[in-house]
């Protein structure tokens, strides 16, 4: 039972990380109709900048404060230089161009930081554990990640549905020409939304730093999981991104933790271990396939 609670929390933590990635990706798609593979690169940049600044200043907060603008700025530059020319193109062109960007950024990181992964420590203030249930200690840092992710979700909901900026974003998403004719600077709005998505990816990367190794190519594995999230949630929907991300995070984590044991109830141990490991790596994709059969457009299709 304690192990179960712990694994559910781990799943939620992975889920909010995925949400930070997926919300940016889905906003950019919903509003600009753009598929951006280089979203994982922004995550990587966030992680590298946070790790480097933290290692030099011994302050995770400073690292975070550097990582967010760095990712947002990189995002804005990418948008202005490359993406702005791709809005009118087909998705295939967007995929290829952003694939080129991934190759560029991965090797750029190797040139700047070398092939050795960077390791950063959990900040001292958050290094301890706290008992979530009697006898079930859980790292504070991971709880903080979950809290930050949920706060971001709340903030995004407020931004999009309750503010004037959010109204402009929604207007730009539903009818670009009319919104432009009504005096909204569409080009600026697009750059802003892209930079916002980039900043969220950078935030996810910076928070992943103390948990994972910071290395070139770290953005890709989470990027593909993010795609699964977006497909499950429905492309363009922030609400769908949240539900999808938590679902994927929990299913993936629980699958890895418990599937081999569950299968051992019906199979012999060795077979169960083998099949369980294989099945658990596939669990989120099977979930995606199931959602696709049930609802081809995702759980929450359209904008929202």
């Amino acid at each position: 039972m304690l192990l179960f609670v712990e694994q559910v929390l781990n799943g939620l933590q992975l889920g909010v990380m995925l949400f930070l990635m997926a919300s940016g990706l889905t906003l950019v798609f919903g509003i600009m109709g753009l598929i951006n593979l280089a979203h994982g690169s922004l995550y990587m940049i966030g992680a590298y900048v946070a790790a480097t600044v933290t290692l030099h200043t011994d302050s995770f907060l400073l690292g975070l404060a550097a990582a967010l603008p760095a990712a947002a700025l990189t995002g804005a530059i990418i948008e202005r230089v490359v993406m702005a020319r791709l809005y009118a193109r087909e998705h295939l062109d967007q995929v290829l161009a952003t694939f080129g960007l991934i190759l560029f950024f991965n090797d750029l990181m190797v040139i700047l930081w070398g092939r050795q992964p960077l390791f950063m420590n959990v900040p001292d203030a958050l290094a301890g554990t706290v008992e979530v249930l009697p006898g079930a200690p859980y790292p504070v840092f991971r709880l903080v990640i979950i809290a930050v992710g949920l706060l971001v979700a709340l903030g995004l909901w407020y931004l999009i549905t309750r503010t004037r900026l959010g109204m402009r974003i929604r207007a730009g998403a539903s009818d670009r020409e009319t919104a432009g004719a009504l005096g909204i600077d569409i080009a600026l709005l697009y750059t802003g939304v892209f930079a916002l998505g980039a900043m969220l990816a950078g935030l996810a990367g910076a928070m992943a730093g103390p948990i994972l190794a910071v290395e070139a190519g770290m953005g890709e594995s989470i990027l593909i999981l993010t795609f699964v999230v977006v497909v499950i949630g429905g492309i363009g929907s922030v609400r769908g991104a949240l539900i999808g991300a938590l679902l994927v995070g929990v299913v993936d984590t629980l699958g890895r933790a418990f599937l081999p044991d569950l299968l051992a109830l019906v199979l012999d141990r060795a077979t169960a271990d083998g099949a369980g490991t294989s099945l658990s790596t596939m669990s989120v994709y099977i979930l995606m396939a199931a959602v696709l059969v049930w609802r081809p457009k995702g759980l929450f299709p359209g904008h929202g």
Binding site: I224, M282, M288, L292, V293
Partner: peptide, 21 residues
């Protein structure tokens, strides 16, 4: 069952599933 951008992401995801398998 889907098309466009869904198709791109889903084919990528299934390929990745086989990779991890």
């Amino acid at each position: 069952r889907t098309g466009g951008i869904h198709f791109i992401m889903i084919t990528l995801a299934f390929a990745q599933m086989l990779y991890y398998l």
